[in-house]
Design a protein around this nucleic acid. Structure first.
Lengths: 147, 147
DNA sequence: ATATAACAAAAGTCAAAGATAGTCAAATTA
DNA sequence: TAATTTGACTATCTTTGACTTTTGTTATAT
């Protein structure tokens, strides 16, 4: 544990009680004598989806930051990381969804819904980011389903 | 419950007896030691149509605020009719029908029937009113089915 | 009696102030 | 060079209060 970020990470991990941890960004920053955005840095580098965490937050009075640990089986993780990656075309995505559906990981209804969300026409922008967007959306939905 | 708004929301939810709750805005504000408009804030952020509530009120002497929990079907109807609006293209209509069917709101048979009724070739006229016609017909049929 | 005016008793609106959290890039450090 | 630290600026949610609108009641004039 060398950096402030490492210290904060350890502190958070130590205080994980039951798969979920809630905190105040400003208070935590105060506690460690750092600027609030340092907390964001820790969250975005240490508590990422890829490492099995979902971060949820709210601004304004009574605001908070929640960190949730998610549990998914390794096979599923494999699919997420190796097959989806950081960008994926529509047809490949459909194949994955078909597979998940056949294996009972998602329902037919869910498949339809997800498919609609990642259809090319839904992701058309003036920029060349369709496949990147699709990968992010797809991973996010699947994580939510399995959370 | 971290904010006053959250507390008031919980209080209201806890006091929901039979699908409807009537209250005095000023008395409630007094009870929680907040300004009356705070009640409006809670109502407009926590008891929205989206979340299945309808808020009704009256000013003046004997004024009141009523919160009604609407059943899913009512909510569903509202959303559907709002989405159809005064004109709708064939594909959107089909999406809605697919949705209704998937959600068990209409049968497969009804879907086939309605679809035939609003097909482009069925609504061809020399005027540019295809989408307007379709909306009227669609709403009329659904209205019949639901009432 | 009836219409009207004045007042009182609600609820509504809206914008400012307060309280958090997020973003992004420059500066620093390992 | 890459990761970390910092802070100025932004976005969002909540709280508050002054001002407005609506409704019911009571007094007054006809």
């Amino acid at each position: 544990m060398r950096t402030i970020s490492d210290t904060i990470e350890k502190f958070l991990l130590d205080n994980f009680s039951n798969e979920e941890l809630e905190l105040s960004r400003n208070e935590l920053a105060d506690f460690f004598g750092c600027v609030p955005s340092q907390i964001n840095y820790v969250l975005s580098t240490r508590f990422t989806l890829d490492k099995g965490y979902i971060v949820d937050s709210q601004r304004g009075g009574g605001g908070y930051v929640k960190i949730k640990k998610i549990n998914i089986d390794d096979k599923f993780k494999d699919i997420i990381f190796e097959r989806i990656g950081n960008n994926i075309d529509y047809n490949s995505a459909c194949c994955i969804l078909d597979n998940l559906c056949r294996n009972g990981k998602i329902s037919e209804e869910q498949k339809v819904c997800i498919t609609s969300a990642i259809e090319p026409k839904a992701l058309k922008t003036p920029f060349l980011i369709e496949n990147d967007l699709r990968a992010k959306i797809l991973k996010n939905i699947l994580y939510k389903i399995y959370n």
